[in-house]
Amino acid sequence: MTTPIGSERPDEAPLETLMFRIIAEIDVAEARRAARHIAGRHGFKTVQAYGFATAVSEIATNLVLHADRGGVIHLTAALVNGIPTIGFTAEDDGPGIPDLALAMQDGYSTLGGLGCGLPGTRRLVDTFAVTTRPGEGTRIACSLTRI
């Protein structure tokens, strides 16, 4: 198993959870729209909502491009120590990320992308955790606390 990066925020009782099956680009768009709305519903400012939606978009796009059978994204909203916090998890049983440290570097891309998906997403959220096993899949969990 590749060394995981980051640690997930412990589970809180969610205020709401939405699930998205991500297979094609159109699913990415739907999850992204929902991400923006969930942020808005819980009082996040537009810039945070935009960043969160972008983070979801980046990771969901990865599911479409890299996990052969797509994956699942859960969007959640919860109160963490009384503060509204939104988050998402992305899970797939795709090929896994062979070199996670490399994939987390800016500008590294295997498919001719810009190479800022994973590292960029990490900068957009407050907590970021990846676990990946070659041949078994990847799990990414992120959260963002309301400013």
Partner: peptide, 15 residues
């Protein structure tokens, strides 16, 4: 490009 988009693109480090 909206101000929100600009701030996000900078964090993403899109060139």
């Amino acid at each position: 490009i909206s101000p929100d988009a600009a701030q996000t693109l900078v964090k993403l480090d899109v060139n």
